[in-house]
Write a protein that binds this DNA or RNA. Structure first.
Lengths: 257, 257
DNA sequence: CTAAAACCCCCGGTTTTCGGGGGTATCACA
DNA sequence: TGTGATACCCCCGAAAACCGGGGGTTTTAG
């Protein structure tokens, strides 16, 4: 099946179930045993939205051992845009006497028969402008050398496929909202947050660890004024405290470190 | 030039200037007269970052008439993930005697010789996990029918090209800016700092705006214990307070929002 | 001209933070 | 089967941050 055919098959799918089996057929053609699509943008959730054609045993293990919070691929997905494979992940060395949870997770994957995995990150916006991050992993159970060869030739195709797959999934879900998985539904509309120069300055110094008094001295204004700017910024950011405000500012790209 | 060659050329570029001329050559091969990359995620900025090989006259007009705030393609980019062309934009009807600004902008583009344009949206995350949205437009000055034909055959290639181009641009910029990391002192290599599971958890909840009391309830431990973990994490991070610690944790990739 | 927003300063009561100080539980290895 | 390293859990008190207001002048945009 060529790339154009695959995209056509995806765009012709008319329900999430159909979409799932379409992709399954496509990735099987490439030699993968299955795939998992997972919402990667909400690390605070214990069980984010996911779907796919992975083995049930793997799903049970993943949930049971809380791998969402230790999966090193998910962590990387949140900071990158290009596909990568499990073999390229840098795992932490064991500190002390315990195996780090990341290593535990990868060992478990191996125990389930997965010898490699291709992870495709995709960050997208819904029709309200809200941003979502997704991770899709294609499982490989055959010879790792064949996997390497596949990557060289078809990495880009698989990347493109996922983009159109996610887009199609979003279109379907927004069309029939009733039984929609929550993640694919448009979240809060993206609000444009506009901080003034002073507000950005005080937040940036806060991010660098300066207290209100420090910042006041740096900027040559009174501590009370600094507090005023911070309060104003927190209101605009809809943040509950200074720490939250700084985190949001970084996430929104308002301040750079 | 094939797709793989084009991507190779992009990934081999070592500066923004080189990257720009690489892409220019590639899109000229497709028949476009030039391109403009623009940071589309900040509607609040009057002059967002942009670069490209557009005619200087067009750039002057764009700035002079403040087209950033009326460009209908930019507005659409913020809500979509697939490439589209100017012809598919739905422009508002003229009300009364005034031309809507969107129409004005498209008319101006035509006056500058552009008969069509392919717009490729791309939403990406940087190494801090911050989300950005970009718009790249490829200008078409030839026969519109040839443009339609090109889209059918090569839309996906152009889409993929942009993804790798943006990623490469980000890599170059973040490499060049690494001499001014105020928040990361040289000694703070990510590898040397290892937080335990609990330490990471309390820092992550702090970044999401939770107070010590909130976090204690979420984790089912006493507030004093939560404080203990935070203090321990701050020591390891060599951070002067919680806000600083959270900023550092994000910068080091230890926690995600 | 006028309204809105940026910028600057202040108070008082409440909550959080962060320097310390404790302790137990678990695990790999000898 | 102990031993040592580490994760994990709890407490105190002085200092700082938070949060709700209250002022005012200057700059910007319609």
């Amino acid at each position: 099946m060529g790339l154009e055919d695959a995209i056509s098959a995806i765009e012709a799918s008319d329900s999430i179930d159909e979409l799932r089996s379409s992709l399954h057929r496509i990735v099987q053609d490439y030699g993968f045993s299955g795939f998992t699509f997972i919402d990667a943008g909400r690390p605070e959730l214990d069980v984010p939205y996911y779907t796919g054609t992975h083995p049930p045993a793997w799903e049970r293990a993943y949930l049971q051992y809380d791998f969402v919070h230790s999966d090193p691929a998910l962590a990387r997905v949140r900071r990158t845009n290009k596909p990568f494979h499990w073999g390229s992940l840098k795992l932490p060395e064991r500190q002390g006497h315990k195996r780090p949870p990341e290593v535990k997770m990868m060992d478990a994957a191996r125990d389930h028969g997965f010898r490699e995995g291709l992870v495709v990150p995709f960050h997208y916006r819904d029709r309200l402008g809200a941003v979502h991050s997704s991770s899709t992993v294609f499982f490989w159970e055959d010879d790792p050398r064949a996997f390497d060869k596949l990557l060289i030739c078809h990495r880009h195709e698989l990347h493109l496929l996922m983009i159109y797959w996610v887009q199609r999934a979003m279109d379907i879900v927004s069309r029939d909202q009733r039984n929609a998985p929550t993640i694919l539904k448009p979240a809060d509309a993206a609000e444009t947050i506009k901080l003034t120069g002073r507000e950005k300055e005080v937040m940036a110094w806060a991010a660098r660890g300066k207290t209100v008094a420090d910042t006041a001295q740096i900027l040559g204004i009174s501590p009370e004024t600094v507090e005023g700017f911070i309060k104003q910024a927190l209101r605009k950011l809809n943040a509950s405290n200074k720490t939250h405000g700084v985190a949001k500012s970084i996430a929104l790209g308002i301040i750079d470190l």
